[in-house]
Design a protein around this nucleic acid. Structure first.
Lengths: 241, 241
DNA sequence: CGGTTGCTTGAGATCCATCAATAGGAGTGG
DNA sequence: CCACTCCTATTGATGGATCTCAAGCAACCG
């Protein structure tokens, strides 16, 4: 249970037991923040990389007219920045959605670990590519999909990502987002977000209640939302349980 | 003139003359593709990283319903993939918009160069962060901006990026995109793309004719489109000529 | 309890897509 | 040099998707 990051990396890379020990060491110290609190604020200089151990976080940006766009979601096991990054001022904020436990990882430490092990280095690059691929899918979602398609596609993505770290059981998982979060992620108003979720429910595809989301028909959901899953590069195929 | 990549990296990092020589060496061999030809197709396995020397390219994805979304644009001096990447199957296509000259860079070679020079490594990471930041801005653009705002914001971004590599003169630059390219980039129909450009022209902000774009009022254009430019991390400020 | 937050619904307005038609240019072949 | 054909840009008209405004309701919490 402890190390979601290890579980995630196993989906796309081969880790030696030393690699896994090194990763566990990197996450030795932990911090906690309550829900709705920023972990890193825009313009702030960070001296460490956040590794999410528990809870959900997001990166977002607020426009001068007050509109908010969530750029990416971070789940347990996610590194919130590229692993090789130098400290710098961040161009957007990182915020806890639920109460979050994370490790502040020293960039030096991870750089040394990556230098000393080729397999670990490859695993970290694979993870970085996966984050980039997720953001690219997000672009396609926002640019060329309808509200219902966006919603279905995001649910498929979250299902796949949570599955990689063992957080899906019986096609059901914890989804601690309000409809406002979903709307700000998918570029919709909360009103229309609500109606899009109803559409998916009326089609018998998903139900979402009391912070839990259940997928009733993954195949149709994927077809409706043009979700491919190949971009996960996890040895070729989408993980299903 | 020859090495746009060097010019670009100088905006955010410090290169030694050895670093610059190493970069020039990496780009020793070149290839050319005509306009509208794929450089890398979806699913194909690449054994090298494309470095654009001349011309414009883009990464795009086509949905099953035929809609196309352009995910990112690549200008002279741009590396089209993260520099530390292992060969893998690409999840989207890379296509030449104009005739393109590029260097197929061996991942090994760039890894060795990055390992041997800290300053070069930092420069390459800075470049990677910049690409990621551009994609994040693209997400905000598509999710929370109107058609005219998107258009203005993209123009500001292209102005800044081209300026970094010396391709802007007198607030004017070559923009070899059709309105269909712009529409597929900005998630709009070609008809509405056309009207949005007219809006900007009517406001006296830009003119776009015969593949050349001229900015008449950068300040107002930036305000209209909420373009900040801080995400370029180029020593703090937007470069103006 | 009253206050807050999140969800839901209705009605009207707005932005943008789609359909359809025209016009200009660039290239091509006769 | 002309006729022809693409491709791109442009314009008008109409419809649809989504936003905004407004109100009501349920759950939670001090």
């Amino acid at each position: 249970m402890t190390h979601r990051l290890v579980a995630k990396l196993r989906n796309g890379a081969h880790l030696t037991s030393e690699d896994e020990r090194a990763l566990v060491m990197l996450a030795a110290t932990t911090r906690s923040v309550p829900a709705h609190r920023d972990i890193l604020s825009e313009g702030e200089e960070a001296h460490w990389l956040p590794l999410i151990l528990d809870g959900w976080a997001c990166r977002y940006k607020i426009l001068e007219n007050g509109k908010r766009q969530i750029i990416s979601l971070f789940l347990p096991g996610d590194l919130c920045e590229p692993f090789g990054v130098l400290p710098r001022s961040s161009d957007c904020s990182l915020s806890a959605i639920t109460p979050v436990t994370f490790s502040p990882v020293a960039p030096k430490a991870i750089a040394v670990a990556a230098r000393d092990s080729q397999s670990l280095r490859e695993a970290l690059w694979w993870d970085l590519l996966l984050s980039c691929a997720n953001e690219r899918e997000h672009i396609v979602r926002l640019g060329r999909k309808t509200a219902a398609e966006r919603t279905g596609h995001l649910i498929c993505e979250l299902y796949t990502r949570l599955n990689m770290v063992g957080l899906v059981h019986d096609m059901e998982f914890e989804l601690p987002l309000t409809q406002m979060h979903l709307a700000d992620m998918l570029g919709l108003s909360t009103v229309h977000m609500n109606r899009s979720l109803q559409d998916l429910r009326r089609l018998g595809l998903v139900t979402f209640h009391a912070r839990r989301l259940r997928i009733h028909n993954l195949k149709d959901l994927r077809e409706l939302s043009f979700f491919d899953g190949a971009y996960f590069h996890n040895n070729g195929e989408l993980l299903v349980v």
